[in-house]
Design a binder for these strands. Structure first.
Lengths: 256, 256
DNA sequence: GTTCTTAAGTGGTCATACCAGTTGACCATA
DNA sequence: TATGGTCAACTGGTATGACCACTTAAGAAC
């Protein structure tokens, strides 16, 4: 039997989640004033410390602005938020996936992936090259086992990103991977063609070993285009289903 | 006369800053145990609430992991941190600029910029198109005034990013812009050639209006390459200065 | 040795008091 | 009218002490 660890949540975490959800979902518009800390205590039935811890976190996340003596207001997270918000934005109130967010993630992946491969080919250390080779070998040993390939592909990119020696890419990748992780089961089939293309992963690993940045870039681009195309087809199909009229989702379309 | 607002800092902010600095600078290695909350109170001479608020924030930022009853440990922020850390990483202990971080930011800018232009050309609303046109007109009216051009260029990208209708790009851009803002004075000269190229901004705005995504992409790429090349020359020169041996900084080189 | 118990230490929660900054109404003065 | 002063009523910020919940490891019991 497979049991999951019990997930515990501190009070301040619960307060944070509730407020973050309200803000990110737009139930509290930018500029709106939050209730005072003491009022929140009453509404949420917790002590002030828990509320303050939550508010401080929201402030740091760029969701609210706290002013000593002057109240607390909601910010426009699209202007002040950071990438880690992606995983919060991915799901809608009803638990369905927000297609616009999913599309955004795939687009960013497609834009950064080739450049990650390029930089890795230029800068990778022997240790990185070896790791990539081992991962590809494992992929070749798991042809057909899609979930295993997905897992290996993620680890492949973990290594590739760290080999690119670009801290901005590493940090951005952390957020993208978090979001992608939430979509794993959904995407394993959609991205099947990309995941099964072990030859391309091999080609990237080889290009990195040779220091052939041009080749690494092109292979990576072609590889990611497979997945991107597949995703966009799915999105278009759902959008068509929900309301015909355009090839892209005009508003927040969803999929369960 | 130009007076700046007095900057105040709450105790928990001060605690947060001190700990974040220690972690990000590597003075506390990943896996190391933090002192207990009560110990930190004594060391920092503040009450426990302030310490807890700071620790909660560090936890959310992916810098530490708090375990109820089991202590608090430092995480590897390169694996768990988010993009907003960039602005913290930009400066070294001595207040000099970390060239590897600066290079990372410029590389990410160069990778995302053209795709932002592409998506904006595909999806921009008439309001966005008009904003871009107005900004370019202002640029043309300020030829030669480099600081003004820099300001307008930032606003140009603000609009372009929001027009791309990609939430991931918007959030990532927030962090990049924060980091870039810290470098404004330093970069205004280095990026002079890029900033003076108002024709390219005009071309992008026009391409967006026409919905010509291909043209928008190419012009944006060419535009950013000017700046990227300039930056890399400066970095190479400094690296050469500090210690000859390679065209890229081998370790954390710095510039005041 | 293995298992259980227990004490010490950790983070989590709570209540209360008071300090510090902001706001707006009101008033005095020029 | 307009400027500045005063004050009361908010707001968030800090402090303290107590207790609860959980983890860990040392020691006792088998």
């Amino acid at each position: 039997m497979s049991l999951k660890p019990i997930e515990r949540k501190s009070l301040s975490d619960a307060v944070f989640d509730q407020l973050q959800e309200a803000i990110v979902r737009g139930r509290m518009a930018p500029g709106a004033a939050l209730p005072s800390e003491r009022t929140l205590c009453e509404m949420l039935q917790v002590n002030r410390g828990a509320v303050r811890e939550a508010l401080k976190r929201l402030s740091q996340a760029g969701l609210i602005a706290i002013h000593h003596g002057g109240g607390t207001r909601v910010l426009d997270f699209k202007r002040t938020g950071s990438l880690h918000l992606l995983s919060q934005l991915l799901y809608t109130d009803e638990g369905t996936i927000n297609l616009r967010v999913a599309r955004s993630v795939m687009e960013m992946r497609a834009a950064l992936g080739p450049d990650v491969a390029r930089l890795c080919a230029r800068r990778a250390s022997p240790a990185i090259e070896r790791s990539l080779g081992e991962l590809v070998a494992e992929m070749e040993a798991h042809q057909g086992d899609l979930p295993a390939l997905q897992d290996l592909a993620i680890r492949f990119w973990d290594v590739l990103v760290s080999g690119a020696d670009n801290i901005a890419y590493e940090l951005a990748y952390n957020s993208l991977r978090d979001t992608y992780d939430d979509l794993r089961e959904v995407l394993v089939e959609v991205l099947g063609e990309e995941l099964r293309d072990v030859g391309s992963y091999r080609a990237i690993a080889d290009a990195v070993r040779r220091g052939d940045d041009l080749s690494a870039t092109h292979v990576a681009r072609a590889l990611m285009e497979k997945g991107t195309r597949a995703i966009f087809q799915v999105i278009a199909a759902i959008a068509e289903d929900a309301g015909p009229g355009g090839e892209t989702p005009e508003h927040d379309e969803e999929v369960s």
